[in-house]
Every structure is written in structure tokens, then in C-alpha cells.
């Protein structure tokens, strides 16, 4: 048994998430990762935008900042630059990160600023009742796509890599041990580190897409998340409906706050 109680704001429980919402599974994986790394909560800050996913920090006994929709990354950038010694964890949804916050997302990755970003990808705007996000798959139904979504979705992990992130991984809440492992790796990496976590939203996505039962959504993850090495060898036809999971990028490169610090020192001695 793991004692989560030490890490949560127990008075806010039971949490507000629906039955079978995966967001609680991610929160628990994050808590275990923080615990096993022996991270200081006083030296850590969790920043989120708006959405069901963005309610995560409110459940954790840690320094938290619940900001505005799409703007978690600018707030987190400010926190990190003001005090680079802090560990800054950003919680964001697929809508929060790639629709309203899309520009902030690519530029934070481009700067390679040392933030750990957990992107909860539930394919939908959960909080507002199931509108399409830029990550809703083609053909999926949403309140704004009653007959199926026509727009191709972002490969957000690919976007982060192309923009300049140093660590990018994709995982899901069925494969819960992998999820914890990747969160832990991201927390340890210096630089912009993204973990895209596939998580069920049975209420706003599942109900419209023949997966109203949370167990069906978990089974979908079990059957369709494919290790990236295997995915890379598959034909386009075999890839249909599958999602690759694994570490997609892990490189060492110049990190923004360290470069900024060097610049300050240089200017002061000139």
C-alpha cells in the first residue's frame, strides 16, 4: 500500500472527476514519482490552466497555481525564471495545451525551458461538455462534430520534438507503471520535458464514441497503445487507430534558465 494521504488535500476528496476518469490515475502516478525521487515539495510548484485535467494541482498538498485557460506555460515560465531552483510541473489538457495555448506550447518547447509538462490527452474538451480539441481523432464524435470530426489532429508529441523539447514521451493510464516511470524521467530531465498521457474521459468522449463504460475505455488503451519500436515497423494500414507509446525524444541541449543565468553573469562582469 502506498500512503497517498500525506500528499493530498484530503478535505477536497472525494475529488470532482467522474467515475472512471483517468485523471486521478495520473495524479497518483505523479505522487508516487515525486515520493520515490524524494523531491522537496517546498521547492516544487505545480501550475495548471483550465479544464478537468487542470484541477489536478488543487488536490495536491504542494505549492500550486491554477491559472487561466491555455496560459499555464507562460505562468510557469515566469515562476521558473524568477526562481530557477524551483521544480516546476505543468498540468494541461489537450485543449488547454494545443488550442488556446498552442502558441505558448511551441514556444516553451522552442526555448527548452526546464519545465515538466504533463499533457492529459483525453481527445476532447471534457470540462465544457465535449467539444472537439485539436487532438480529437478524425471520425470521432463530439458535441461540435455530431457526425464525426473532419479535422486531422495534431501529433502533439511530434510538434514538441520539432519545436525543440529535450524530452518527450507518450504513455497512458492503463499502462500505469510505464506512466509513473516516464513522469519520473521527465521530472529528472533538465529542459522542456513533455509526457503526453492518454487518459479516458468516459463522460464527454466515451459516451459519444461507444465507450461510455470506463472499463471499455481502459480496454481501448490496453489494445491500441503500441510500443514505439513496434509502431515504427508497422505499415500505414496497421497503424490505423493505433497510438505509439514510449520515449520519443531524450536529448541534452542548452536550457533556457541556465543560458539566462550565464548571460546575467557575463553582463555583470563586462
Amino acid at each position: 500500500m502506498f500512503n497517498y494521504l500525506e500528499y493530498i488535500r484530503e478535505s477536497n476528496f472525494p475529488h470532482i472527476w467522474c467515475a472512471g476518469c483517468g485523471d486521478g490515475i495520473i495524479l497518483k502516478a505523479l505522487i508516487r514519482a515525486i515520493d520515490k525521487l524524494g523531491m522537496s515539495r517546498d521547492e516544487s510548484v505545480m501550475v495548471s490552466g483550465i479544464g478537468c485535467s487542470s484541477r489536478t494541482p488543487g488536490y495536491m498538498d504542494i505549492n500550486t497555481l491554477h491559472t487561466t485557460h491555455g496560459r499555464a506555460l507562460p505562468f510557469a515560465t515566469g515562476v521558473k525564471l524568477a526562481n530557477p531552483d524551483l521544480k516546476v510541473i505543468v498540468i494541461t489538457g489537450d485543449g488547454d495545451a494545443t488550442a488556446i495555448g498552442g502558441n505558448h506550447f511551441i514556444h516553451a518547447a522552442r526555448r527548452n525551458i526546464d519545465l515538466t509538462v504533463l499533457l492529459y490527452n483525453n481527445y476532447i474538451y471534457g470540462m465544457t461538455g465535449g467539444q472537439c480539441s485539436p487532438m480529437t481523432p478524425v471520425g470521432s464524435k463530439a458535441s461540435t462534430a455530431q457526425h464525426g470530426n473532419l479535422e486531422p489532429s495534431f501529433n502533439t508529441s511530434g510538434l514538441a520534438i520539432a519545436a525543440g523539447a529535450s524530452f518527450v514521451a507518450r504513455t497512458d493510464v492503463y499502462h500505469v507503471q510505464q506512466c509513473e516511470k516516464f513522469i519520473s524521467k521527465a521530472l529528472q530531465k533538465k529542459g522542456f520535458s513533455l509526457v503526453e498521457i492518454m487518459t479516458p474521459c468516459p463522460t464527454a468522449y466515451g459516451r459519444r464514441n461507444k465507450m461510455a463504460n470506463p472499463v471499455t475505455m481502459m480496454e481501448w488503451l490496453k489494445d491500441n497503445m503500441v510500443p514505439v519500436a513496434k509502431y515504427d515497423k508497422m505499415t500505414d494500414q496497421e497503424r490505423e487507430g493505433k497510438v505509439s507509446a514510449g520515449i520519443l525524444c531524450d536529448i541534452d541541449k542548452a536550457e533556457f534558465t541556465a543560458e539566462y543565468d550565464k548571460l546575467i553573469k557575463k553582463v555583470r562582469t563586462e
Binding site: Y4, G22, G24, V173, V176, Q177
Partner: peptide, 13 residues
């Protein structure tokens, strides 16, 4: 696995 996957912190082993 039940404890790890419970979204609601409701089951312990």
C-alpha cells in the same frame, strides 16, 4: 494493479 489503477484513491492492498 487495482490500487495503482483506481482513479479515486479508494482501494488499498
Amino acid at each position: 494493479l487495482c490500487e495503482l489503477r483506481c482513479p479515486d484513491f479508494a482501494i488499498t492492498v
